Measured scan of single mutants.
Amino acid sequence: ELKKVVALYDYMPMNANDLQLRKGDEYFILEESNLPWWRARDKNGQEGYIPSNYVTEAE
């Protein structure tokens, strides 16, 4: 089971490997080892790295 998180803030990608975050949207965490960058997937199936301090665990 993948960990689900909710974006606390918008995040615009800095490079091609990053994933855009939209405040309030849910994302699945694929990999937590790259702290403070986590690999995530959005609801459309896009994958990339996000800043872990921009998300919180979903209820």
Rank of each mutant, 00 (worst) to 15 (best):
Y9S: 15
W37H: 14
G24C: 02
E26N: 07
G48D: 01
W37E: 14
S33R: 08
T56M: 14
D25A: 10
Q20G: 13
A40M: 03
L21I: 06
P51W: 05
Q46Y: 06
E57L: 09
Y11L: 07
I50M: 03
Y49S: 10
E57F: 11
R41V: 05
K4G: 03
W37R: 15
Q46T: 09
I50A: 02
A40Q: 01
N15W: 05
S33F: 12
A40F: 00
L8S: 06
Y9W: 09
E59S: 15
W38D: 05
E59C: 09
L35I: 13
M14F: 14
R22E: 10
N53P: 03
A40K: 00
E1M: 11
T56G: 15
G45K: 06
K3Y: 04
A16G: 12
L2P: 05
L21C: 03
K4V: 08
N17F: 11
L21H: 01
P13E: 03
F28N: 08
A16N: 10
D42S: 08
E32F: 04
L35N: 09
D18Y: 14
E26K: 12
N44P: 02
R41F: 05
L8M: 12
E26Y: 07
N53F: 05
E31K: 11
K3I: 03
N44G: 14
L35G: 12
A58S: 12
E31D: 09
P51I: 02
L30V: 12
M14P: 13
E1H: 04
I50V: 12
R39F: 08
L21K: 00
Q20K: 08
S33Y: 08
L2Q: 12
N17C: 12
K4N: 03
L8P: 02
P36G: 07
L21R: 00
T56E: 14
Y49V: 11
D42M: 02
Y54W: 08
Y27L: 09
P51G: 03
Y27S: 01
P13D: 02
T56W: 10
W38G: 04
Y11F: 13
A16F: 04
E1R: 05
N53L: 07
P13C: 03
D42K: 02
D10Y: 02
E1C: 03
M12E: 14
D18R: 13
N34M: 14
D42I: 00
K3N: 06
A58R: 11
V5Y: 06
M14S: 13
G24W: 03
M12F: 09
N53A: 13
L2Y: 10
A16V: 10
G45Y: 09
V5I: 04
G48C: 01
R22C: 13
N44Q: 12
G48V: 00
D25S: 08
K3D: 04
G48T: 00
Q46P: 02
E59K: 13
L19R: 01
N53R: 11
R41E: 03
Y49H: 08
N34G: 15
N34C: 15
G24H: 04
N17G: 09
V6S: 04
E32H: 06
G24L: 02
N17I: 04
Y27E: 02
R22K: 15
D18C: 14
D10G: 05
K23H: 11
A40D: 00
K23M: 05
K23L: 04
Q20D: 05
K23N: 05
E31R: 11
A58T: 09
W37G: 05
E32A: 14
V6K: 11
L30E: 06
K4M: 05
V55Y: 01
L21M: 08
A58L: 06
E26S: 13
Q20F: 04
